[in-house]
Simulated assay, not measured.
Amino acid sequence: MIKFSCPECGHGMKVPDEAAGKRGKCKKCGETVQVPKSQKAEIITQPPPMDFDEAPLPSRRRKRPTHREASPVSVEIHQEKPVTNSLGIAALVLGIIALLLCWIPFINLITALPLGGIGLILSLIGLVMAITRKGTGIGYPIAAGTLNFIAVLVPIIMTAFFTAAAGTAVSAIDEAGKEIERRESERNKPLTTNADGEATEETEVTDTTEEPNTEPASPWDNASAIYDGELVKVEITGAKIGKVDLKTFSGESTSEDDFLIFTINITNKQEAKKMDFRGWKAETFDDRAATLEDEHSNQYHGARFSSASRVQGQAAYESIYPQKSVGDVLPFEVPVDAAKELRLKLPAAAYGEEGQIHLIYDAGEVER
């Protein structure tokens, strides 16, 4: 076999030995080539010298394509604008801020509520725009809308809760105040005995007829030196101005100053129930202490002595059995000379009832 290469294109070829010296066409470039005679030549870069007897082969030039300059073509490039999520991002930022502030009572009304409302509007607009863009960037407005909705809802719920709680508290306070007033009214209602010797309680009467305004009757109008009630009978048995007899650890003594001294008798009128009587002595911050005034509204303080001294005959804590009586001694400041009526109020709380016993004693009957 003879191996050689095409002098035009360099394509390698193999032919039988019998083809030595013959001409043929290259399978690659189509040029006519002559097979070399030497068997040792494998690659021939130049054609072998031709004999002068042989006519030279007509040279053929390879037609090379002519390059024409292309005419300029204008190409319009359409570049899509990047999709922005500015509304969704802004709404998301507002939602985060509003969500942090919505848990603070009262402050959330002026911070979280308006911020959440604005963020909710922006998120709705961003959601509509994302839908028109076939869902591009829809995650931002959805997340922002959720946060802003929670930030708006929490202040509304908290405000409703606190409003309801405040209303309940106000109602409870109002009811408690009315109950206190009712109990105070019951505790202070006047208890007197009328001219027929019957116990009376001053009550408020509502009349629908139109009458001229008149001042209410005074509880002292029916008062006397005796109160004869359903449960108890209280009577002023005497009054004098003088020294108060005291009992101390060292023995008996008397007060340095003169006082108005009332002697009181209280009787348990019940048939089968005993009564606990705590007395009407003057004590600090005690709603059971007796009070004294005159018709001129002069107030007279009850006499107070040291804890080591006790007024002789004064009740401290007594049990009054049915149909039995105990006494009490009540010293007060000496009244003014112009006083005609000495008005003594004795709280019924001293024996476990409600109201105020009103007793009047004639100042002219006081022993001096």
Score class of each variant (00 low, 15 high):
Ser5Asp: 10
Cys6His: 03
Met13Trp: 10
Lys25Gln: 10
Cys29Pro: 06
Thr32Tyr: 11
Gln34His: 01
Pro36Ala: 07
Pro36Leu: 13
Pro36Gly: 08
Asp51Leu: 04
Glu54Cys: 06
Leu57His: 09
Leu57Phe: 15
Pro58Asp: 11
Ser59Cys: 12
Arg61Pro: 02
Arg64His: 13
Pro65Asp: 09
Thr66Phe: 12
His67Glu: 08
Arg68Met: 07
Ile77Val: 09
His78Glu: 11
Asn85Met: 08
Asn85Arg: 02
Ser86Leu: 02
Val93Leu: 06
Val93Met: 04
Leu94Lys: 07
Ile96Ser: 06
Ile96Asn: 11
Ile97Phe: 13
Ile97Tyr: 11
Leu100Cys: 13
Leu100Arg: 08
Leu101Ala: 15
Trp103Arg: 03
Trp103Glu: 07
Leu113Met: 12
Pro114Ser: 01
Pro114Cys: 04
Val128Phe: 08
Met129Phe: 05
Ala130Glu: 01
Ile131Asp: 11
Arg133Tyr: 10
Ile138Lys: 13
Pro141Phe: 06
Pro141Leu: 06
Ile142Asn: 13
Thr146Leu: 15
Val152Lys: 14
Ile156Ser: 11
Thr163Ile: 15
Ala165Cys: 07
Ala166Lys: 06
Thr168Cys: 11
Ala169Glu: 00
Ser171Gly: 09
Ile173Ser: 05
Ala176His: 06
Ala176Thr: 02
Lys178Arg: 13
Arg182Glu: 10
Glu184Gln: 09
Thr192Met: 06
Thr192Gly: 02
Thr193Gln: 14
Ala195Thr: 04
Glu198Thr: 15
Glu204Ala: 04
Thr208Asp: 07
Thr209Cys: 01
Ala225Cys: 03
Gly238Phe: 09
Lys243Val: 12
Thr248His: 12
Thr254Trp: 11
Asp258Arg: 05
Ile264Cys: 04
Ile266Cys: 05
Phe285Glu: 14
Ala289Phe: 05
Ala290Gln: 15
Ala290Tyr: 14
Ala290Arg: 12
Leu292Met: 04
Glu293Thr: 10
Glu295Tyr: 09
His301Thr: 03
Gly302Val: 01
Gly302Phe: 08
Arg310Gly: 03
Gly313Thr: 00
Glu318Tyr: 06
Ser319Pro: 02
Tyr321Gly: 06
Lys324Asp: 12
Val329Gln: 07
Leu330Asn: 02
Ala339Pro: 01
Arg343Cys: 03
Leu346Gly: 03
Tyr351Pro: 03
His358Pro: 01
Ile360Asp: 15
Gly364Met: 00
Gly364Glu: 10
Val366Ser: 14
Arg368Leu: 15
